[in-house]
Amino acid sequence: MKQNRMTIASLLIAMLILGMVFVPAASAQDNDNGSNEKIVQTYQNTKFAQIVHDFSDPITIKELNETREAIINSYREEKGNTSRPILYSIPQLSKGESIVAYCFRINDDGTTSQYVGRVSDEESVIKIEERVKEWYNNEVLNPAEGNAIKTLESISNNMNSSSSRSGAEWSDPCRFYDDKYQSPYGGVTNNYEMYVLYNDGSSTVDWFAIVQEFGLEPGYTAYTPSVWKNYIGYAYQEWCDGTLGNEQLYSYRPNGPYTGQTSQGVTITGGSGGASAGITWTYSQPDVSTVCYCSTNTDIAKWKVTCNSGAAQTSTVGINPGSTCSATQHSSGNYKILDVKGVGVFRESILSSKTLTTTSSPYISY
């Protein structure tokens, strides 16, 4: 009898243990499903997502893609078939680099905005968290103001477009923000605005425009008391790496070279068969030397920035280059438009330098 009681007690304990093991597992699964359903958030007429991870648990490209697709699918289900394509971007990761923040939003009119924050060390995560707050305030809460994130003094406040009598016009901008930071060297800013030309005068060709906000922030200011300073930067707009087909670089500015602090108005244009439209902005640069290496033979727009003075080497500096390109028109599918790259070379001394690179690839979904 005593033995039977012990057997029953043992069975009860075993059942209790099994219950303790399986119940939390089911609860965790339920929580995961709930979090997936809450990926897409809504503020007024804007659908968006905002993800921030720890350095020890970075965001994967798979998670990034699934988040973006959830937002786009939600938008298309609500709006039905839309005649205008949707633009997005996929970051290219280099060795030792982790994504700790990803934000994406789509407005009621189909224009998009995206932020990607990359780091190579835990100390830099706080820099990215600051950018995420800035993105949310400017791109979700106050998108009607039409202001991009202004991390550089060189960004223009008077972007505008002009069109010919044909009715060609550039779309409202889709904004993409990409930061790469690594302590104690500094950070590279690779922001840009993408445009698509409507009423472009062709049934076989599409036209695209980009205005890039490229910048360098030295470790001297980002990671005080770091002694690393800005040295050289490169801004790339590599249309040849697109998958649309028949990419042809057409217009690019500034064409320089320019040395020292300067400000001037520049325009890039695009269009076919008499249809033409331009985008104009004020190009400003601090005390740096800017040389243009754009080539219609390679379909690569490239600029080199050299920091001349101590002030340029120890503060955030940048330029705003832009270009246009034509490519084969499509009616469906997803295609890469180009690669947008920012490269920063930082120096501790003449014998010691560090290169940071960030590449973002904008796509079009027809």
Score class of each variant (00 low, 15 high):
Pro257Lys: 02
Asn320Trp: 01
Thr306His: 01
Val340Ile: 14
Glu63Trp: 06
Leu18Thr: 11
Leu216Ile: 08
Gly117Trp: 07
Lys95Leu: 14
Arg105Asn: 15
Trp135Glu: 03
Gly265His: 06
Met1Arg: 14
Asp206Phe: 03
Glu238Gly: 03
Ser276Lys: 03
Ala312Arg: 02
Cys174Lys: 07
Gln264Thr: 12
Ile59Pro: 05
Val100Trp: 04
Thr269Glu: 11
Phe22Ala: 11
His330Asn: 09
Ile51Val: 13
Thr67Ala: 04
Ala14Phe: 11
Ala25Cys: 09
Lys229Trp: 02
Ser183Phe: 13
Ser98Tyr: 15
Asn36Met: 15
Gln237Thr: 11
Ser154Trp: 09
Asn255Gln: 09
Ser74Ile: 02
Ile61Val: 11
Lys229Arg: 14
Val205Asp: 08
Ser295Ala: 07
Leu11Met: 14
Val132Trp: 05
Asn308Cys: 00
Tyr181Gly: 07
Val288Ala: 00
Ser203Thr: 13
Glu130Lys: 15
Phe104Lys: 00
Ala144Asn: 11
Asn81Phe: 11
Ile8Tyr: 10
Tyr43Trp: 11
Ser10Leu: 14
Ser263Leu: 01
Tyr88Thr: 11
Asn157Phe: 04
Met6Cys: 10
Asp206Lys: 10
Arg165Gly: 07
Ala327Gln: 02
Leu244Tyr: 00
Pro286Ala: 05
Tyr236Ile: 10
Arg347Ser: 15
Gly215Asn: 09
Ser27Tyr: 14
Thr82Asp: 11
Pro362Ser: 04
Val317Phe: 00
Leu351Asn: 15
